[in-house]
């Protein structure tokens, strides 16, 4: 059986909130290493990959591999009943029909318990190769969110060009064009506000802003975001969580 307790319900709430508009139904794959999820969006343009390692739970017990097929809108309806600071315990049998969620508020002596029905989901699983990216950019997640939001008002697409001088996000639309250039800098008072660029070769790729804006819904999970780029391969957008990560892969656009 599965029994996994999170110190704060908000971790799962934020993950589900961030991905529910990209993915409707998906399997949460549970094993002794933790809980993982991989799912493509309906258009097969983006891939979501999430890991919550067993060390992020206390206690964590999972005797055998269990796939929890869940409708994310249903899960979100239940998770909205949990306060951010509640303890959240997930429980399921070895061959479950439902997932049990228990929310505990220590301050109010309140216990809430919900069961949601599970579904059989036959999902295509993709193997993601280990990639040495040509450019890795670490920047404040709020900064990336702002850039995507501002440029999406002008255009459907953004080019991301990274070279030794910095990273330039540029777009062109019917009303005009715009760009934001970030140069590497270190904030000595708050490391999370720094921008770092690691580069082995210059890259220039174009992506759909609609998807990037969607990925930025994960910004509350982490103060920083990592963008990994290589020419002609999908962009990796990564938000680190305490004992895991939420990753988005986005296929590039080509031509006009």
């Amino acid at each position: 059986m599965l029994e996994a307790r999170l110190e704060q319900a908000q971790i799962l709430k934020k993950v589900v909130e961030a991905i529910k508009d990209l993915v409707q139904d998906c399997n949460f794959d549970c094993n002794d290493a933790g809980i993982q999820l991989q799912a493509m969006d309906n258009s097969h343009v983006a891939l979501v990959s999430m890991k919550l390692g067993s060390e992020g739970f206390s206690p964590y017990r999972c005797d055998r591999n269990i796939a929890l097929g869940i409708n994310l809108n249903s899960l979100m309806k239940v998770l909205r009943a949990a306060a951010n600071e509640d303890l959240l315990t997930l429980k399921a049998e070895d061959q479950p029909d439902s997932l049990n969620l228990l929310f505990e508020s220590s301050s109010q002596d309140r216990l809430s318990e919900y069961d949601i029905k599970l579904m059989d989901i036959d999902q295509e699983h993709l193997g993601i190769p280990d990639t040495e990216y040509a450019a890795t950019i670490t920047l404040p997640s709020a900064e990336f969110q702002r850039i995507c939001r501002d440029l999406s008002a002008l255009s459907e697409s953004v080019s991301i060009e990274a070279n030794k001088d910095g990273v330039k996000f540029a777009c062109s639309g019917d009303i005009g064009n715009g760009s934001v250039t970030l140069r590497p800098h270190t904030n000595v008072e708050d490391e999370d506000k720094s921008t770092k660029i690691e580069l082995t070769e210059p890259v220039n790729l174009t992506f759909s802003l609609k998807y990037l804006v969607n990925f930025c819904k994960a910004s509350s999970l982490s103060a920083t975001v990592r963008l990994c780029l290589s020419n002609e391969v999908p962009l990796l957008v990564e938000y680190q969580m305490g004992a895991g990560y939420l990753r988005f892969y986005l296929a590039p656009k080509i031509g006009d």
Binding site: V45, L47, E124, L126, Y249, A251, D256
Partner: peptide, 14 residues
């Protein structure tokens, strides 16, 4: 969308 590649073109189906 025009010119949009699919993710499955890059990652192997398991």
């Amino acid at each position: 969308e025009q010119g949009q590649l699919e993710i499955v073109q890059f990652f192997k189906s398991l």
